[in-house]
C-alpha cells in the first residue's frame, strides 16, 4: 500500500517537473501568441495591447501559474490553428492514437516473445543467427521507411489496404481497422525487432541460471523448463522494456501519422509544431509526456503482480 502511495506521490512530482520543462521550452520561442494571432505585419500598438490583455508582459512565473491553473481546471485554452478548445480536441485525437499504439504493441509482443525465446533456446545456432540478423535489420530501418514500403506493397502494389486517413471505430469498425492496420504495422515492425532482441537477451540470461538446471535435474521436459520456468521469469523484464517503448512509440507516431494522414495525437502535434501553435504545443507535449509516464507506472504496478519479490520491499 505504501508502495502505491509513494509511487503516486512521485508521479505528482514528475508531472509537476514535466509541466515546468514543457512551459520553459515552449517559452523560448522567438514569436509569441500575440504575433501568431495578429500576424507579423500587424500594427505594433495593437500588438502591444493584445500582449497586455493576454498577460504576456507578466513575469514568466505568473504566466506559468496561470497556465498550470488552467490545465488543472480543464481550461486548456484555444488552438490558434484549429480555432477550437484544446481539451476536447486532444481527447479525440488521443483516442485515435491509442488505437494504433495498442494495436502495434500487441502485434509486436505476440510475435517478438516467441521469436526471442526460440532464438535464445537455440543460442549461437542457425535459428538464433537467422532471428537475430532479421531483428538487427528490423531495428536499423527508420519507421517511415517501413511505412513507405508498406504503402508501396499493400496500398499501391496489391491495393488491399488504404494508405491514408482515419476512420472512427464508433462509425465503422471494419473501416477503422483497415485504416489502422498499415500505420500499426509500420510502428510495430521496428518495435517487434527491438522486443525480439530484448527477449532473446533476457531469456539467454535466464536459461543460464541455476534454477533452470535444477528444473532439468528434476526430470521436467524441455518445454516446461523453457516455456514455464524460463518464460515466467522473463515476463517482468520484457514488460518493462515494452513499457519503455511506449515513449518511443509516441515519438514515432508523429512521423507515421503524418505519413499516413492518420489524424491522431502525433499528427496534431506535428501540425502544432509546424504552425507554432504555442498553446497546442504546450498541451500536447504535456499530455504525451504524462501518458508515457502513466504507461510506465502501469508497467511497474504490473511488475509487482508478476514478480513476488517486489511485494515485500
Amino acid at each position: 500500500m505504501s508502495y502505491l502511495v509513494n509511487r503516486l506521490l512521485s508521479m505528482m512530482l514528475t508531472l509537476f517537473l514535466i509541466s515546468v520543462i514543457t512551459f520553459t521550452v515552449t517559452n523560448i520561442l522567438p514569436g509569441d501568441v500575440a504575433m501568431m494571432i495578429m500576424g507579423t505585419q500587424s500594427n505594433p500598438e495593437a500588438l502591444a495591447g493584445l500582449r497586455q490583455s493576454l498577460g504576456l508582459n507578466d513575469p514568466l512565473i505568473v504566466q506559468y501559474g496561470r497556465w498550470i491553473g488552467g490545465m488543472l481546471t480543464g481550461d486548456w485554452g484555444n488552438s490558434l490553428v484549429f480555432k477550437e478548445p484544446i481539451a476536447p480536441l486532444l481527447l479525440q485525437k488521443m483516442k485515435a492514437s491509442a488505437l494504433i499504439v495498442l494495436f502495434s504493441m500487441s502485434i509486436a509482443l505476440v510475435c517478438a516473445v516467441p521469436l526471442g525465446v526460440w532464438a535464445a533456446v537455440h543460442a549461437n545456432r542457425w535459428q538464433d543467427t537467422a532471428a537475430s540478423s532479421a531483428s538487427l535489420v528490423g531495428v536499423s530501418l527508420p519507421d517511415f521507411f517501413w511505412g513507405i514500403m508498406l504503402i508501396l506493397l499493400f496500398a499501391r502494389g496489391l491495393g488491399w489496404l488504404p494508405s491514408s486517413g482515419f476512420i472512427d471505430p464508433a462509425d465503422d469498425i471494419w473501416g477503422a481497422m483497415r485504416h489502422a492496420l498499415l500505420p500499426s504495422l509500420a510502428l510495430g515492425l521496428g518495435l517487434m525487432a527491438h522486443l525480439t532482441r530484448m527477449t532473446r537477451a533476457t531469456m539467454t540470461g535466464i536459461l543460464n541460471q541455476e534454477f533452470i538446471r535444477v528444473a532439468r535435474a528434476k526430470g521436467l521436459d524441455e518445454g516446461t523448463v523453457v516455456w514455464r520456468y524460463g518464460l515466467a521469469n522473463a515476463v517482468g523484464p520484457v514488460m518493462t522494456v515494452a513499457g519503455l517503448q511506449v515513449g518511443y512509440l509516441f515519438g514515432s507516431i508523429i512521423v507515421i501519422e503524418s505519413l499516413f494522414n492518420f489524424t491522431g495525437m502525433g499528427w496534431l502535434t506535428y501540425q502544432a509544431l509546424l504552425n507554432r501553435d504555442i498553446p497546442l504545443i504546450q498541451a500536447s507535449v504535456f499530455v504525451i509526456a504524462a501518458v508515457v509516464m502513466l504507461a510506465n507506472l502501469i508497467v511497474d504496478l504490473l511488475y509487482v503482480a508478476v514478480d513476488p519479490r517486489i511485494r515485500l520491499s
Binding site: E210, F211, V214, A217, Y229, A232, N233, R309
Partner: peptide
C-alpha cells in the same frame, strides 16, 4: 541432484 547456490536454485517466481 542438488547444487551449490541455494539462493538461485529455486525459481523466484513460483
Amino acid at each position: 541432484m542438488i547444487f551449490q547456490e541455494p539462493m538461485t536454485s529455486l525459481n523466484p517466481v513460483f
